[in-house]
Design a protein around this nucleic acid. Structure first.
Lengths: 156, 156
DNA sequence: TATTGTTATACTCTATAACTATA
DNA sequence: TATAGTTATAGAGTATAACAATA
């Protein structure tokens, strides 16, 4: 009898707050993110490009002449990592370092013509991959997701 | 004149479809995910526990007696990785392998009393971290995000 | 023969310290 | 002295091949 009275206790906590990992945004997001990245990695593989390299090419195109330090900060990687990344892009003649600044310690980073042309293709590949990896969502839901994610990242 | 007539072309593509990385769910999600994981890693550090170990403890608690192969599959890691993980948990007496199955090749994995008690604390830490890392969202928005993420992961 | 768990190994990604050349 | 870029190195995390014990 007493037990029955307690069967529906006041729901003070949000519905999802049980003991499962599925209620942690970080955990669920990690699983999803791994899957999305895998799809992109596979598709970029035939161009011998890693997702991070694609991001670097995009950033250089959007801010031609930027310094390596700026590239590192934008990609949230350490300067030594940026060196290796730019080395590879330069070795493939996709981007180049040019000593153009008044400060002769720094380089300006630019895309080559080849880099621009490749990036144009990669953009299509990346968008197709991203739409495919999120095809379980409607177009509206995908927009909502992007809005929520950008809101989470917004106030760095 | 002609230009003016073309000024507002039919909007066939979604609004966000420009050339930016910010329109790729995978890219934006990666940045967010790194930040959330960093917060959790920092908070678990004082317990000398990595996020993956926390997940392993949770899974073992939810399915006591499971085999290492099952743990590996649930965590989406390779069997050799599961070995190292269970080794560490066992070395700290948080979990244990018990030859309980009819199939004598496999172990059953169980939490120790210590493991259960620690996990109880870790759950609070993890939830607090997750809520903190998503504090830019309202409670409703966070639920929306979880729903969208689970929808993305749903049909494995 | 196939499977569970294991060992050994290697490859990627990432982080830090120390060096160089300019400022 | 401080900063941009670089080198060297080490630590995670992850993936694969090969082996032992059991099925």
């Amino acid at each position: 009898m007493l037990q029955k009275l307690k069967a529906t206790p006041p729901q003070t906590l949000p519905e999802r707050l049980d003991n499962s990992l599925n209620n942690l945004v970080g955990y669920v997001m990690r699983r999803v993110q791994i899957r999305i990245t895998q799809d992109l990695t596979n598709r970029l593989e035939e161009h011998d490009i890693r997702p991070a390299q694609f991001a670097a090419l995009t950033i250089i195109e959007q801010s031609p002449g930027l310094m390596q330090a700026d590239l590192a900060k934008t990609l949230a990687i350490e300067p030594p990592q940026a060196v290796l990344m730019v080395n590879k892009l330069e070795a493939r003649s996709l981007a180049m370092r040019i000593r153009s600044n008044p400060d002769k310690r720094s380089y300006g980073l630019f895309l080559s013509k080849t880099g621009e042309q490749l990036l144009k293709q990669l953009r299509d590949v990346a968008l197709e991959s991203d739409l495919n990896a999120t095809s379980a969502l409607t177009s509206d839901e995908r927009e909502q997701l992007l809005t929520l994610l950008n809101k989470l990242y917004g106030d760095k």
